[in-house]
């Protein structure tokens, strides 16, 4: 009797893999648009031509009617002029604290943003002349000198006060880049900050009301409340999130979600934050997985030896 088992196994494996290929990689390639990452290069934005002067940049950022009129820089002891809820009522969304901006955002992007925010953020379709609306952050029209030089100075200053790349935590990157629009309830993150542990129910309710007020303003500004990102790493996956953040318009034409302008390192930190939230046990999964595989392979070796032993007399 010829042993047909290898042939049968090959047939079973072939049809299983064919089915898998068709319902997974193939079907998903039909259902979803696929975009390759540009590595957060922001090729459409012009390069910075001037070398920035930190001291001059500081004067410009802190100057009357400049950045700190709306933005906090808490690392430099500058609090925001308004609390988050009031600011959202005025602008739609709370303007970011600039303490970490130099580390989170791409320099070229910051440069373009200061000159023309709606353009850099890719939200010009929302603020057309016909709409009668203008982007809440005004364009910088220069402080009397060479504008390219002045903006380069400001960017240099923001980079000089920002934490070094290795000091930037995933939470800092997420909060600066995403956290003013997106809640992450599995990490207790709300749009107005991390929800503290309250001893009194009343204090907790007051906090919740502030969050709801903020979300009302935000939903009005964005058209809908941006989603909670707790397990977006599972529902969307790393590739989609990265390429979406790089250029939201390519997936969702007309979306109110701005291009965030994070640099590649900060994008990795944001992904790490989302993994901590939505795929918390990934390290444990890998280590347990390795041990289980070793155990099962040893089990299979014993099973093979037992089968041989038992079947020796049967052939």
């Amino acid at each position: 009797m010829k042993n047909k088992e290898p042939l049968i196994l090959a047939v079973v494996v072939f049809f299983t893999l064919a089915t898998y290929y068709l319902v997974e990689p193939f079907a998903h390639s039909i259902m979803h648009k696929h975009f390759e990452s540009e590595g957060f290069a922001y090729k459409d934005l012009p390069a910075i031509t001037k070398k920035g002067n930190v001291a001059r940049g500081k004067e410009l950022v802190m100057g009357a009617g400049a950045c700190t009129g709306c933005h906090a820089i808490t690392s430099q002891g500058l609090e925001a002029p308004m609390n988050a809820v009031t600011a959202a009522r005025s602008y739609g969304v709370n303007p970011p604290d600039l303490s970490n901006a130099g580390a989170v955002y791409d320099a070229k992007f910051l440069d373009a943003l200061i000159k023309n925010p709606a353009h850099a953020l890719m939200v010009e379709h929302k603020f057309t002349p016909e709409s009668g609306k203008s982007y809440p952050m005004p364009k910088f029209y220069g402080a009397g000198g060479n504008m390219d030089q002045e903006v380069a100075d400001m960017v240099a200053y923001l980079q000089s006060i920002a934490p070094k790349a290795d000091k930037l935590t995933p939470a800092m990157a997420f909060e600066t880049a995403c956290g003013r629009c997106h809640a992450v309830r599995y990490e207790k993150w709300t749009q107005i900050g991390e929800k503290p542990e309250y001893k009194k129910k009343r204090d907790e309710l007051e906090f919740n009301i502030r969050v709801l007020d903020y979300q009302d303003s935000l939903a009005k500004y964005m058209g809908t409340l941006p989603p909670d990102l707790s397990i977006y790493i599972r529902s969307r996956g790393e590739h989609y999130i990265k390429t979406f953040v790089e250029n939201p318009q390519q997936y969702l034409k007309g979306t109110a979600m701005p291009r965030v302008g994070v640099n590649a390192e900060a994008a990795d930190k944001v992904i790490e934050y989302l993994e901590d939230s939505g795929d918390t046990k990934r390290h444990e999964r890998e280590s347990v997985g390795k041990n289980v595989m070793i155990y099962i392979i040893i089990f299979a070796i014993f099973a093979l030896l037992w089968k041989r032993e038992v079947w020796r007399d049967l052939h």
Partner: peptide, 24 residues
Amino acid sequence: NDFMSKDMLVVAIYLVFFFYLVFY
């Protein structure tokens, strides 16, 4: 144990595949 020993060998090979899917 005759049939069972062959069963368990197939089960063991299947479990390698199964746990690969579970973890990876």
